[in-house]
């Protein structure tokens, strides 16, 4: 019967059960007034809720696995483009980084497995180069240039100003995942220095207020 109900209502099994309990509870409370039955039902409801919570958790796990499979499939595409060539390891990681904006642990393990190189070597590369991030990035990237030209023109002050405006330090991502704040060695636009790049745009020595305004205007 449960199955029929479920099909008819397009609800999940748990939801049907919960709905049924709800109806029963209403009925009992309104009609019979018998307290022990009511209590039993409430007890049952509690247990059912707990089950539902468990099931939801499992479902989350399912989602996670589904996402993971998707992620690894994307990674596979990149690996296949390089014919599974271990000498292309750095190039492969760069492409994954560009697509996903970070390298997750399962990704790194998968790359090691598929290329047949030890995970330690993959980790060595992923931690050695500046381009790789082992944590997810925020939606926007803020980069203060610390090239020599910018340095002599006051990059350190600019760095302080950006830190103050965003409330996070270089290397950090804020809790809303809005900004990741980094320093770079040279953006190659020395004529504008000191310079901060926010996503694709360059700003020449903005004030704290200006940075705040720019950051607030972003989604």
């Amino acid at each position: 019967m449960l199955k029929e109900l479920q099909e008819a209502s397009q609800m999940s099994q748990t939801d049907v059960l919960l709905k049924g309990l709800e109806v029963l509870g209403d009925y009992v409370a309104a009609e019979s007034g018998e307290s022990s039955l009511g209590e039993k039902l409430r007890e049952l409801e509690r247990v059912a809720l707990q089950h539902a919570e468990e099931i939801r958790k499992i479902r989350k796990k399912e989602d996670v696995i589904r996402e993971l499979v998707k992620e690894l499939k994307d990674v596979d595409k990149i690996i296949d483009r390089h014919n599974c060539d271990p000498s292309a390891l750095i190039q492969i990681l760069l492409e994954i980084q560009a697509e996903k904006r970070w390298l997750s642990k399962p990704t790194l393990m998968w790359v090691a497995e598929r290329l047949g190189v030890p995970l330690s070597r993959v980790m060595h590369i992923a931690t050695f180069y500046k381009a790789f991030s082992l944590e997810p990035h925020g939606r926007h990237l803020v980069q203060v240039c610390l090239g020599t030209a910018c340095h002599v023109r006051g990059a350190q002050q600019l760095l302080n100003k950006v830190t103050m405006a965003l409330g996070i330090k270089p290397g950090e991502t804020d809790s809303d995942m809005k900004f990741t704040f980094k320093t770079v060695n040279c953006l190659g636009c020395c004529a504008l220095g000191p310079v901060v790049m926010i996503d694709e745009k360059y700003y020449s020595d903005p004030s704290v207020d200006e940075i705040k305004k720019i950051s607030e205007d972003l989604e």
Binding site: D85, S87, A88, I90, R121, Y129, K130, A131
Partner: peptide, 22 residues
């Protein structure tokens, strides 16, 4: 493509990187 390491511009380091190692 280089992935951002000053020392990888040194000749022996660069060649190691081309081989896909650090």
């Amino acid at each position: 493509m280089g992935a951002g390491a000053f020392v990888s511009g040194e000749s022996s380091a660069l060649m190691t990187a081309i081989e896909g190692r650090v």
